[in-house]
Write a protein that binds this DNA or RNA. Structure first.
Ligand SMILES: [Mn+2]
Ligand SMILES: [Mn+2]
Ligand SMILES: [Zn+2]
Ligand SMILES: [Zn+2]
Lengths: 159, 159
DNA sequence: CACCTATGGAGAATGATTCTCAATATCTAA
DNA sequence: TTAGATATTGAGAATCATTCTCCATAGGTG
């Protein structure tokens, strides 16, 4: 099934033209399950025979994020990644393996609850959450890789 | 009191020369309480009469982060910020006000515990944590600012 | 269909970060 | 303390993701 009609509706609500390029970008993102970079989105568009300029992809991603249908991520690679939120909790974090680069979703509701509680303590109204935990995934651990502390030998106290 | 001797120790442990520039950068960062950008660090060095090149600041920040004495942050501004970890929990998050840009520290131990629990469920070994919550701070709320949903009018379910 | 306006795209511009390389500063051992 | 071996510095070039510019063209309206 297609979710593009939701993006179309958003564009109309905002009085923005529904163009072929905008629909193509949304389709490619909605059909993918992963966390896509702009380069990867361009590649998928090319595979489908669409000739969409890089600037248009960037502009459309901005709209998709504003619409709330897509979230922007940063896994510390030097560029952004995007994922649609269909079938996912809009507030979810990521476990990122520093060995293999694999990404695992954190979908625990409990995490949002405590984050909200802490924010409320400060009188803060949360709008957007970002949680990323970098380390070693189960597969890489099983393969014998290990985390090793390469910093100061007797560091300041760690919690 | 000065913490620079810890960085000096780290450099010696790694067999790296202790240079005037490295000490100057560490001093400036250790003496500041905030979340500093590379530009701000350069400014502070200039105020002290040090002539340290931008490249050296970047290189030294990388070492300070590797040593574990300093953490790298990204508040979505398009550049990195750095803070020393003396007197703070090494695992702490940030509340970032989208109206005024203010940053509040989240020092709750409970947050690390549940993050670790969730990671453990996946067999993941955590090494580095990043939690940022964007929204409206108490001051801006009191001043009448409000969060408003500008996305799709009838969005997908939100948790 | 025809008009008006906003978009699309190629390539230039931007800006943070990294790289290059010759002139120095640091380290070590005598 | 000095000399020699080695690593660092810093100015500016290079990189690279992202944004901007501008005009030919597509989308919306009636
Ligand atoms: Mn995800
Ligand atoms: Mn902090
Ligand atoms: Zn892995
Ligand atoms: Zn504020």
């Amino acid at each position: 099934m297609s979710y593009v009609h939701l993006f179309r509706r958003y564009l109309r609500e905002q009085g923005l033209p529904v163009t072929q390029q905008r629909e193509a970008v949304a389709e490619v993102v909605f059909e993918s399950g992963g966390h896509l970079s702009v380069d990867e989105i361009e590649g998928l568009l090319r595979e489908r025979g669409e000739k969409t300029g890089k600037a248009t992809v960037y502009r459309t991603m901005e709209m998709l994020v504003k619409s709330g249908l897509v979230a922007e991520r940063d896994f510390g690679e030097g560029f952004k990644r995007y994922e649609h939120l269909f079938g996912q909790m809009p507030v979810h974090g990521h476990l990122i393996c520093e060995e293999c680069g694999g990404v695992t979703e954190i979908q625990e509701v409990e995490l949002k609850r405590i984050q909200d509680r802490v924010a409320a303590l400060e009188g803060f109204a949360p709008a957007r959450y970002r949680l990323e935990i970098f380390g070693l995934c189960a597969v890489c651990r099983a393969a014998g890789h290990e985390l090793e502390w390469k910093g100061l030998s007797c560091p300041i106290e760690r919690v």
